[in-house]
């Protein structure tokens, strides 16, 4: 029988998936080296304004807790690399977050807003496509109206779109994550 009337709050393990830990290791973040010092959290510009705590994300991921993949927290990282450069154990934190995002994306956890940037890339070859106002300004500045990028080569653009960034659909039981 437990000595506790109310059992102490321990890490809620949730569902675990060992691929998460393997992904971290492959990305240059060996969970056994992390001393959970929190330098990453303290360095995080996004964490100043949100409930995202880098140390906590890395801890959950180190324990392979599956919910870390569907949690919008990993998408609040601006990839500023401050945690990465400051980690006293030289762990590649930012790259690990990117690897987690890759794993999340492969399972369809990508927000609609992010899916739109991929649509733009497929349609125009650019994440930020040109518009009529800019075409006019380009002419005024003495530049070619259209830069000679892949946008001017629709056949190649179509081929690229078919080859790259084909995103899996969102899992059926998962709604678009709520806005903060």
């Amino acid at each position: 029988m437990s000595v506790f009337k109310n059992p102490p709050c321990v890490l809620d393990s949730g569902k675990r998936d060992p691929t998460i830990e393997e992904t971290l290791k492959a990305a240059g973040f060996d969970p056994n080296l992390c001393i959970q010092c929190g330098t990453c959290t303290a360095s995080c510009p996004s964490g100043r304004w949100t409930a995202m705590r880098t140390r906590e994300v890395m801890r959950k991921a180190a324990f392979s807790i599956e919910v870390v993949l569907s949690d919008p927290d990993i998408w609040l990282c601006t990839t500023c690399y401050q945690c990465y450069d400051r980690c006293p154990r030289d762990l590649q934190v930012t790259d690990a977050i990117i690897a987690l995002r890759n794993l999340a994306s492969a399972r369809g956890f990508i927000s609609d807003k992010h899916r739109k940037t991929v649509d733009l890339l497929h349609k125009t070859g650019h994440a930020v496509p040109i518009n009529d106002r800019i075409r006019k300004i380009r002419k005024e500045l003495g530049l070619p109206e259209l830069p000679p990028t892949v946008y001017c080569y629709p056949e190649e653009l179509e081929k690229l779109g078919k080859t790259l960034f084909q995103l899996p659909p969102r899992p059926e039981d998962h709604d678009e994550e709520e806005e903060r």
């Binding site: 990117i98 690897a99 890759n102 994306s105 492969a106 992010h114 991929v118 890339l121 960034f165 995103l167």
Partner: peptide, 9 residues
């Protein structure tokens, strides 16, 4: 590097 690297490195 922010969006597209995150989707599929």
């Amino acid at each position: 590097p922010g969006v597209f690297r995150s989707f599929n490195k």
